[in-house]
Amino acid sequence: MSGSLTVSGMGDLADQFDAFLIDQFGVLRDGRGPYPGAAETLSRLKQAGKRIIILSNSGKRSAENDRRLAALGFDPRSWDWFLTSGEVAWRILRAESVKAKIGVPRKCLLISRDGDTSPLDGLDLERTERGEDADFILLAASEGDVYPLSYYEALLAPAAKRGVACLCTNPDKIMLTRTGTAFGAGRIAELYEELGGTVRWIGKPFADIYRTALDFLDDIVLDRICCIGDSIEHDIAGATGAGLKSVLVTTGILETVSDDGRRALFVEHGAMPDFIMPKFIW
């Protein structure tokens, strides 16, 4: 595509950068499991002496994702940090709790997946299952493959009516599942805004997660850091906003989108990748 250089794999790029921020879903794996060759490519990149952060719009905290990726056959030594939007949000909530020193714990309506409570673990918060009495909403994940959007509307409408703030820690509007795609937590957050609620977005393409990652890589200049992802709206736009180079892989959510369709998305989101790669291979 015009303006983006097409490369065949990471072997074409490794020497140009000292650090990589690599998306999880759509680059390393999908809802069924790892992409062929992804684990080997990640290990080879680390063996080449690169600093690697896996940067994910997962509402789960970092340690939960470390364990999950290792269980899929990825070598935990092949990344330096698995940084998730859930981890960034947890740190923000912890700092706010310490600063506020509130005597009575706030009630949080946690919307997560697979019974995951890690976004709240260790925080002085009380969990509620009802929008009617929540003090705030933590929107960490979607079960859009289980429940229709109307389920979330009924759950959230009472909170929106009361002006309860929502923290969305997974801005992805589409998620990859074992059976295909479904609406993600970002779509639920949009619904909350449509209901009149306010949302603070944490994760790609927003600044907090990039600020945290770059603090970790503070000894590396920006033009030697490259982001790799499958979403123009999140990965490529986020990299552009952070002043970083980027690679768009054509796996993941855009796998069936034509070249013309991708060009239209570049225009829509005001971001174009520096490189396009068919998949995360060496």
Rank of each mutant, 00 (worst) to 15 (best):
N57W: 04
A182W: 00
T169F: 05
G103E: 15
D23M: 04
C227V: 10
R187D: 14
V247E: 10
W79E: 05
G243Q: 01
K46F: 04
F216H: 13
A63S: 14
T117D: 14
L55A: 02
R187F: 15
H269P: 11
V257A: 15
I22H: 02
R29L: 14
L69T: 08
F25W: 03
Y147Q: 12
G243F: 03
M175D: 10
R113W: 06
A207H: 10
F183G: 06
L139E: 01
F266P: 01
Q47Y: 14
L149I: 08
G115K: 00
P36V: 09
P158N: 01
C227N: 11
E132W: 04
L195C: 08
S2N: 12
L214F: 02
A39W: 08
F275Q: 07
S231P: 10
T256M: 12
I54Q: 02
I236T: 06
L254Y: 15
R44F: 14
I92S: 09
K279N: 14
L191V: 05
A207I: 12
L217V: 04
L138W: 01
L21G: 06
G252K: 06
K279M: 14
C226F: 06
L265D: 08
H234L: 13
R32H: 12
D145G: 09
D145M: 04
I52T: 04
D80Y: 08
L110V: 05
P171N: 05
D133Q: 02
D218E: 02
E153Q: 11
I228D: 02
S56E: 00
L265H: 10
T169H: 04
S8A: 11
S97R: 11
S258L: 12
G180Y: 05
T84I: 06
T117N: 11
L214E: 02
E87G: 07
C168E: 03
M272R: 15
R187W: 15
V27H: 00
G3C: 07
M277P: 01
L69I: 10
D121E: 14
S2F: 11
A159K: 01
S56F: 00
I236P: 02
R211L: 15
Y192I: 10
E87H: 08
E40I: 11
I111T: 00
C108W: 04
K99M: 15
P76M: 08
A71N: 12
L191Q: 01
I236G: 03
K204C: 07
T41I: 04
L120H: 11
D15N: 11
I276G: 04
G197M: 05
T41D: 03
L5A: 12
L139A: 00
T181C: 09
L110P: 00
D172R: 03
G261I: 09
A100Q: 13
D218I: 08
K245G: 11
R187K: 14
G37D: 07
G243V: 03
V27G: 04
F266G: 00
A239D: 03
K161I: 12
I188M: 06
G184H: 03
R91W: 13
I53C: 04
K279R: 14
A38K: 03
A14W: 12
F280D: 02
F275Y: 15
F82S: 07
E268M: 13
L254M: 12
L72S: 07
R211N: 11
Y35P: 09
T169W: 03
